[in-house]
């Protein structure tokens, strides 16, 4: 396949970026999108240029590092896939492909296609955990009866890999799908109950502080989510936050 690639180049966080056009020939349809990017970087390096910086790690759809906005969609045209799981057979010979970084105030560009997603880490640090006694007398989790349906739902929420495609896809750059998945994975289980109310308040507060936009229920996040996290998570968080806010003493 022969492709025309339009790639966002930006030297640093403060630098002004622009789209660079590259012609790439001999791309195999069996390559993953990241392998195609490796091939492009190889070509750039051989010509004496600066390779394109992009995030990637596991290349099997579980780490959430790869983060490209391809032809107007997070992780490209595929559904339920990360960029590393997207293959070049999804494109046609002669296609022009636009490749951009996630764009959000809360995800500043570091260089080219890499963005700083530590806002997500700070949201998790604000409350996305359960406090357990680690004195050696920790209760065996399997000893607590949990309805199968709840366990499955909690597991579905927990499959969120924190890639940020929800923020990237949302026209408001809202992080509601991510935060609600991280709230839900505990809200659905008995272990999550003691901190259920403080958790949702702290995480929503942090989300707002990071400068993400507001949810307008367009549903783009759930469509683009590589893990199929659905909008019922957001509804659950809306519900939990309301009840926590009404009940809280402050």
């Amino acid at each position: 396949m022969n492709l025309t690639l339009k790639v966002w180049r930006q030297n640093g966080p403060e630098a002004k970026g622009h789209m660079d056009t590259h012609a790439l020939e001999g791309v195999s349809p069996d390559m993953s999108f990241l392998e195609m990017m490796d091939m492009l970087n190889d070509q750039i390096i051989r010509a004496g240029g600066e390779p394109i910086a992009f995030d990637h790690d596991c290349r099997e759809g579980i780490c959430g590092m790869c983060s490209m906005f391809i032809n107007g969609e997070a992780h490209g045209p595929g559904r339920g896939v990360t960029t590393c799981q997207l293959h070049m057979r999804s494109f046609k010979d002669g296609d022009t492909i636009a490749i951009e970084p996630w764009r959000a105030k809360a995800f500043p560009v570091i260089k080219d296609l890499t963005v700083d997603r530590s806002a997500f880490d700070r949201i998790i640090q604000a409350g996305g955990y359960i406090s357990v006694n680690t004195s050696g007398k920790t209760m065996d989790a399997n000893a607590i009866p949990i309805p199968k349906q709840d366990a499955d739902e909690a597991f579905s929420s927990a499959t969120c890999i924190g890639c940020g495609a929800c923020v990237a896809s949302c026209k408001n750059a809202s992080a509601m799908l991510f935060v609600s998945a991280k709230v839900s994975q505990f809200a659905l289980l008995p272990q999550g109950q003691p901190e259920r109310e403080t958790r949702v308040q702290r995480m929503v507060d942090q989300m707002d502080k990071e400068g993400f936009g507001n949810c307008t229920n367009t549903g783009a996040c759930a469509v683009e989510c590589p893990k199929g996290i659905d909008l019922s998570n957001i509804a659950r968080m809306n519900r939990d936050f309301m009840s926590a806010s009404v009940k809280s003493k402050k």
């Binding site: 045209p77 951009e100 105030k105 026209k171 809202s174």
Partner: peptide
């Protein structure tokens, strides 16, 4: 919401998902 994305996408396909 506008402030949450100061730099917009060059190519955005909103109709694909909403």
């Amino acid at each position: 919401n506008r402030k949450a994305r100061p730099t917009g996408y060059v190519k955005e396909k909103g109709s694909a998902n909403a």
